[in-house]
Amino acid sequence: MTTTAESTTTTSQDETTRMTMAVAMNSALDLALDGDEKVILLGEDIADPAGGVLKVTRGLSSKYGTGRVRATPISETAIIGTAIGAALAGYRPVAEIMFMDFMGVCLDQITNHAAKLRYMSGGHSTIPITIRTTVGEQRFGAQHSQSLEAWFMHTPGIKVVMPSTAIEAKGLLASCVADDDPCLFIENVRLAFSQKQEVPVGDYRIPLGEADVKRPGADLSVITYGPAVHTALATAETLADEGIDLEVVDLRTLIPLDMASVMDSVAKTRKAIVLHDATTFCGPGAEIAARITEELFGKLDAPVKRLGAGYHPAPYAPSGLSYLPTSDELADTARELLGY
């Protein structure tokens, strides 16, 4: 487990500035383009003046040219396929798919090619691509909202990353771009602008596959990632007033999955809730809960609980049909488990 970002540069090591998560990701891409001429960006509307749907690529085509920061036609299959082909020729492409629900359009390229080419070639082909996508915006309706990370966890050969803070977004994105395997980097729309931190200005990387304990606690482990980390932290403050001490473990990456840190936490607290925005049924929490139960059966004081979205498409009605797990639900579940 790590709790701090380790700088890998000698200059600007200590310099920080206040950044949103979106700006932090822009900084990661800027440094990657600057540091490695083989890094290229592909995606719809990513060039200036549009600068991407969340403005994460703003300014980069002006700085590095539209040869390397390349706006594409609305062709998700061609975007990912082109990224794969360029990767086969030694490039490190970063492809943007505007919304995670659009993954269905290019799923063949991601799951049949990016994820399998290393294996199918007996290790001869290396696909160092990063696919950036966004999730978590309810106001567009069911085709722009869903958290589909379980699809990719279930496909051997692709890494899955979802940051919860600006510092981690920058350090994890830098690691994805430098990684020799395909990485899916999921950006939460709500966090992109609400998360602001003092973020190191220089280049640093946070290793993939290392969970982070965002809040140590003694009574119950909340295993979570992405935006739900903030739900868990808020709930922990509420429950602290009742004398309940939550530990919040931020997985940060789902593949590689730091199960050792999960087990360490739950072995200590003996109770666990897995919390995420993805659908509970067959979601990431199902795997994690099953693993906790298999490995810590004799040490658990209560059943392992899962909290996520219900089994239905994402509804529109922005205020009338909220469907993501709430702090109240988490608090109630925690109280229930403390009763065992």
């Binding site: 061609a78 990912i80 396929g81 082109t82 794969i84 082909g85 086969l88 492409p93 390229q109 090619h113």
Partner: peptide
Amino acid sequence: PIAAGLGLA
């Protein structure tokens, strides 16, 4: 599309 990526490279 993979060939197109090789072409881009």
